[in-house]
Design a protein around this nucleic acid. Structure first.
Length: 806
RNA sequence: GCGGGAAUGGCGGAAUUGGCAGACGCGCUAGAUUCAGGUUCUAGUGAGCAAUACGUUCAUGCAGGUUCAAGUCCUGUUUCCCGCACCA
């Protein structure tokens, strides 16, 4: 009788040590083998330690990585630390510790937590974004961006977090507040480093067609890039040389333009100031608009405000009509040309505005009553009141108008994107210094590559200055340097890079993490890239995922990486909620600590529950009892050892189908990230084993091989206890035999008029003729069809027979 | 408003091309084992009717439709979640 107890705390430690000693999960430099690159988003090592969300993603790809190794691939499954950033800096400020020390401690803590869960990371390739050996190359890529005109400095109104005292990218502002700290974000004009991501808008869009990303990621990125097609055209201003250029997606409605709107900041107001009769009123409106944050602008439920610019009239280029010009803050300076032609009949916003200020509404497409409600045109509506467009349906009218405008030189086809350039400066300490020197004579001077890394100096105070400058600006010794070109006294750039910089290329560094001569060798990049499978959070879709695609597209364009796209496949996990169904947070008191769970049920059961709790891509509430259920299952697996019997062979012949279909099902489900059903299939298999009561070593082996990616420690231990030879991680992935997927006998449901009236075990080979002869004889069914006419027989082999009777 | 997704027992969730709805787990009920139990084992567990049994009716947000057959397909509709949003 088998009597060794299952003690996860002992065997897990034991196997983690063995794997480490044997370097079981090292990615090798044997470039002749087929490779597989699995990637999870490297964590930010916060002081709070690991939360239960990390293991969901990590375990999911750990399963894939372990399976791929068993399938013979050279697998790269790396880990690292995205360690620059605000929380660390804030902690350092509060506790008067150097952020570098905080980072080091947090990383040590994170690493030990991750190791305890038994992930098959290749720790020899760890990267750390705050390591000068790493950020040297982050700075180097920045210099390349600068060299190619993609990094520039500009005086820009930017998003300014009032609490972090720091500029933010558009992507970092959520609902008008700072994504990180939730404080109010205001507009502030600052001289900022910007990255020209807009230059890549179309490539970022086109690239999506070439990769295997889940649909919602693609949709969200497309939406964020926000491409729209239309035309730009000029309206002349009466009695002046000025023209007013507008962007519209509906040039076909040009005859319906009854007024113009420019945004409050529009330069036309300044250029024609002396002609504006109500200049005070207009400037006053401008001041009021400037006071509103973007958030307030959209919060006001879109109640339209505006002021007519008296003394100005625009001329509609197609019909010569004079129309009034208004300023209103529903037109944004940052999109298109900052000015629109208003077609109230067919645009909801213009319609509301026209109603509010009693402006004329002229329909230019058939259908709808535009005095009552705005008319959103359909493709079948035809142009009216539109001169040469009359009678044309929308698509043709659009085409015809653009041709007309281009012929007459009034305007041209134009594509616009909502995507904005990336605000790349942060007025903070704990980030990569921007390797730039400002010289009074030479202007902006990039550092020489040989001067990299530009080390982050030690400072006494990490706080942003009162004037909103980076703490580095107080470091006179560091700031004041001779210009590398003319040697005149010059100053270093004191802003640092945003947290997203280091993570925009880390997956490249993993390919060759210790290289001192390049960010990675060509050979390593050619072999490992692209990432075959990348899993991460949806919250990074329009941040990290977009930024890193941009950097990679750029590196591709300058010939440094082979493929344009970095990630072949992108999937995303759902969030784990607290037991009460709410988002986990300290303030709600519903946080589950992975360490506590592992203390109680062990890492294997913990990993298993993370995968079993529900559909991988959906948000799921944690349930500690459910996790205990997984522990219970592993106990049952452990006890299977007392049922192993060489002589069981004859008895358990009936398990052949179950084992073979489990191999098929579990393998496929892992690939499709249907971990919950894969585990359910394994549970069913174990239930079958218990039903039979005695199993062969081969049956146990099959189970262990299938279960090992999810619960590797217990499987290795049983494998060893049973004397099955080489460690499990070196075994090949099991194969199923096609001919044992179907049982000899199957149960057929017998329906009468679609209702089940009986079931019968039959030979699985039973053909239609036999089935239609034999099955209706079923004792429950025969009386029902006795004396009735059978109109139709539908036989689905292996499933059912339906008798349609009258 | 635009885009994406979802709705199935007390709970998390299963269900290839339409083919036996509720796999698997949690919880719950009863019994057995145990000095003990957050142990193990056995049986049961969608609702109703029934109480003779492999009986019967109703059930996948709602209302229709197609089909021998619908959670799955079609039309309409409601609710919820996520992302974007005065983007012209």
């Amino acid at each position: 009788m088998f009597s060794v107890p299952y003690q996860p705390e002992i065997i897990e430690k034991k196997w983690q040590q063995i794997w480490e000693e044997q370097q079981a999960f090292r990615a090798t430099e044997d470039y002749s083998k087929p490779k597989y690159y699995c990637l999870i988003e490297f964590p930010y090592p916060s002081g709070a330690g690991l939360h239960v969300g990390h293991p969901r993603s990590n375990t999911a790809l750990d399963i894939i990585a372990r399976k791929r190794r068993m399938e013979g691939y050279n697998v790269l499954y790396p880990i690292g630390w995205d360690a620059f950033g605000l929380p660390t800096e804030n902690y350092a400020i509060q506790h008067h510790v150097h952020p570098a020390k905080v980072t080091r401690d947090n990383i040590d803590h994170f690493r030990s937590q991750l190791k305890r869960i038994g992930f098959s990371f290749d720790y020899s390739r760890e990267v750390n974004t705050t390591d000068p050996g790493y950020y040297r190359w982050t700075q180097w890529i920045f210099l390349k961006l600068y060299e190619h005109g993609l990094a520039y400095k500009a005086e820009m109104p930017i998003n300014w977090c009032t609490s972090c005292k720091c500029g933010l990218a558009n992507e970092e502002v959520v609902d008008g507040v700072c994504e990180r700290c939730g404080s109010e974000v205001v507009r502030k004009v600052k001289n900022q480093w910007m990255l020209r991501i807009t230059h890549y808008a179309q490539k970022l869009l086109d690239g999506l067609d070439t990769v295997d990303f889940i649909d919602r990621v693609k949709a969200q990125q497309r939406n964020w890039i926000g491409r729209s097609e239309g035309a730009e055209l000029d309206f002349s201003i009466r009695d002046s040389d000025e023209t007013l250029r507008v962007y519209t997606t509906r040039p076909d409605t040009l005859f319906g333009a009854t007024y113009m709107v420019v945004s409050p900041e529009h330069p036309l107001v300044d250029r024609l100031a002396d002609r504006i009769q109500n200049l005070d009123e207009v400037l006053n409106y401008r001041t009021e608009a400037a006071k509103k944050s973007d958030f307030q602008r959209s919060e006001l439920d879109h109640v339209k405000t505006g002021v007519q610019v008296k003394g100005l009239a625009a001329i509609n280029p197609v019909n010569g009509n004079e129309i009034p010009v208004w300023v209103a803050d529903y037109v944004l300076m940052g999109y298109g040309t900052g000015a629109i032609m208003a077609v109230p009949a067919h645009d909801a916003r213009d319609w509301e505005f026209a109603k509010a200020f009693n402006l004329p509404i002229t329909p230019v497409f058939s259908g709808g009553n535009v005095q009552e409600a705005v008319h959103n045109t359909g493709d079948e509506d035809v142009a009216i009141n539109s001169g040469f467009l009359n009678g044309l349906p929308v698509p043709q009218a659009k085409q015809r108008m653009i041709e007309y405008l281009e012929e007459k030189g009034l305007g041209e086809r134009k594509i616009n994107y909502k995507l904005r350039d990336w605000v790349f400066s942060r007025q903070r300490y704990w980030g990569e210094p921007i390797p730039i020197i400002h010289c009074p004579h030479c202007g902006v001077v990039p550092l020489k590559e040989t001067d990299l890394p530009l080390l982050l100096p030690d400072v006494e105070h990490y706080e942003t200055t009162d004037s909103g400058e980076s703490p580095l600006s107080r470091m006179d010794d560091w700031v004041n340097v001779p210009c590398p070109v003319c040697e005149a006294p010059a100053k270093r750039e004191t802003d640092t890079m945003p947290q997203w910089a280091g993570s925009s290329w880390y997956f490249l560094r993993y390919c060759d993490p210790h290289n001192d001569n390049a960010f990675a060798s060509q050979e390593a990049l050619d072999y490992w890239m692209p990432v075959d499978w990348y899993n991460g959070g949806m919250e990074h879709t329009t941040l990290h995922l977009l930024y890193s695609r941009f950097w990679h597209l750029f590196l591709h364009d300058i010939g440094l990486v082979k493929a344009p796209e970095p990630y072949q496949k992108r999937t995303s996990h759902g969030m784990i909620l607290g037991e009460n169904g709410e988002k986990m947070s300290k303030s709600r008191g519903n946080v589950i600590n992975p360490d506590d769970m592992i203390d109680e049920i062990g890492a294997d059961a913990f990993r298993m529950y993370e995968m079993f709790m529900g559909a991988f891509d959906q948000a799921i509430p944690w349930n500690t009892n459910g996790a205990r259920g997984c522990k219970r299952f592993l106990d049952r697996v452990w006890r299977l050892q007392s049922m192993v019997d060489e002589k069981a062979r004859g008895l358990s012949k009936r398990l052949r189908v179950q084992v073979n279909s489990a191999i098929e099902k579990v393998g496929e489900d892992y690939e499709r990230m249907k971990y919950n059903t894969a585990i359910a299939a394994l549970m069913s298999l174990v239930n079958d084993y218990y039903d039979v009561g005695s199993i062969t070593p081969d049956e146990l082996k099959a189970l262990l091989l299938l279960l090992s990616p999810v619960a590797p420690h217990i499987c290795e231990e049983i494998w060893q206890l049973q004397g099955y030879g080489d460690p499990l991680y070196r075994q090949p992935w099991p194969q199923y035999d096609e001919k044992y997927l179907v049982a000899d006998q199957v149960e057929i449901a017998i329906q009468v008029n679609g209702k089940i009236r009986g079931r019968m075990m039959v030979d699985s080979e039973l053909d239609k003729v036999q089935a239609e002869r034999e099955l209706p004889l079923h004792p429950q069914v025969a009386p029902l069809i006795d004396g009735r006419q059978v109109v139709k027989l539908v036989y689905v082999p292996g499933r059912l027979l339906n008798l349609v009777i009258k």
